[in-house]
Simulated scan of single mutants.
Amino acid sequence: MEDNNTTHFGFKQVPTSEKAKHVAEVFHSVASRYDLMNDLMSMGIHRFWKRFTLHNSNVRRGAKVLDIAGGTGDLTAKFADMVGSKGKVVLADINASMLNVGRDRLTDLGKSGNIEYVQANAETLPFPDNTFDCITIAFGLRNVTDKDKALRSMLRVLKPGGKLMVLEFSQPVSWLTPIYDTYSFKVLPALGKLFTNDAESYRYLAESIRMHPDQTSLKKMMEDAGFERVDFMNMSAGIVALHSGYKF
C-alpha cells in the first residue's frame, strides 16, 4: 500500500524521493546493453511496435518532435528523417548514461543536423509552453515517479492540435498471462544474467511492467491530465499498448 511518502520500485516500496535514484541505477547498469535488453524483453518484436508508433504519429516535414525517455534513439533516428532539415527532434532522457549512448549511436549513423539532446525529467520538462507538434514516450512512462505530473508537463509543452503517443508494456489478454509471467519472472532474469551478468535489473523491469496502469487506467489518467480524443491500440495480444491523445 502506497502513501504520500512512498512509491513502488518494482514490487518494493521505497521513499518517493528516492525512486528516481533507484531507476537511474538500473539504467546506468544497462545503458551500454540497452538494445540487447529490448531484444531480450520483446524477443525482437519491439521494432514492429516502434514502426507502428511512427506510422501513427502523422509527423510531417518541418515538425518539432520530443522523444522522451528516448534511450538509444530508435524513434529519434526515424523522426529525424521524417521531419527533414527544417524540422527538429529533441531526444530527452533523465539518465545521462542513456543520453550519451543515444548521442553516440545517432552520431555514428550520421544523424545530427536536426537533433538536439536534453537531459530532462518528464515531470518538469524544460521547454516553453506550446513547443512541440508531437511527443512520444516509449517504454519510459512506467519508470516515472509521478505519472500524472509528467502527463500534465507533456500537455503543457505540446502545441494546440499536437499529439502525445505513449508506447508501453500493458495488460495482456487473460489466456496469455501465465505464459507471460513465466517468461517475465523466470526466463528474462536468467537471460539478463547470461548475456549481461545483471539479473536484478531485468527482474526490476519485469516488475515495473506489472505495476504500470493497465490500458483503461492509463486512458483515464491521460484524460484527467487534459488530453482529448484519448484512445489506445493493443499490440501482441495486449502485451504492449499504444495510447494517443491530443491537445486542443
Rank of each mutant, 00 (worst) to 15 (best):
S17V: 08
E18C: 08
A20M: 15
A24M: 06
E25S: 09
H28D: 13
S29V: 15
V30D: 10
A31I: 02
A31T: 04
A31S: 01
A31K: 03
S32Y: 06
R33Y: 09
Y34G: 07
L36Y: 00
M37C: 08
N38Q: 10
D39W: 01
D39L: 02
L40M: 13
M41T: 02
M41N: 12
M41I: 13
M43R: 11
G44M: 02
I45Y: 01
I45T: 15
H46Y: 14
R47T: 11
W49Q: 03
K50R: 04
R51L: 02
F52N: 12
F52T: 07
T53P: 01
T53S: 01
L54P: 01
L54H: 03
L54N: 02
H55Q: 15
H55R: 15
N56T: 05
S57C: 03
N58D: 13
V59I: 03
R60F: 02
R61F: 06
R61P: 02
R61K: 12
G62I: 12
K64H: 10
V65K: 07
L66F: 05
L66R: 03
D67I: 07
D67S: 05
D67G: 06
A69C: 12
G70A: 04
G71C: 15
G71A: 10
T72A: 04
G73Q: 06
D74N: 09
D74S: 12
L75V: 04
L75Y: 02
A77W: 00
K78Y: 07
F79I: 05
F79Y: 03
V83K: 11
G84L: 03
G87L: 14
G87Q: 11
G87D: 13
K88E: 08
V89E: 00
V90C: 03
V90D: 04
V90A: 10
L91R: 13
A92W: 08
D93G: 02
N95G: 01
N95A: 14
A96C: 06
S97M: 11
M98D: 07
M98P: 02
M98W: 04
L99K: 09
L99S: 07
N100F: 05
V101F: 11
D108P: 00
D108C: 12
G110L: 07
G110Y: 05
G110N: 07
K111D: 04
S112M: 10
N114H: 02
E116C: 08
Y117A: 01
V118C: 08
Q119C: 13
Q119H: 05
A120R: 06
A120C: 07
N121D: 12
E123Q: 08
T124H: 14
P128Q: 15
N130T: 10
T131K: 11
F132M: 14
D133Q: 09
D133E: 12
T136A: 05
T136R: 03
I137Y: 08
A138S: 05
F139Q: 06
F139P: 05
G140H: 10
G140C: 10
R142C: 10
R142G: 15
N143G: 08
N143H: 04
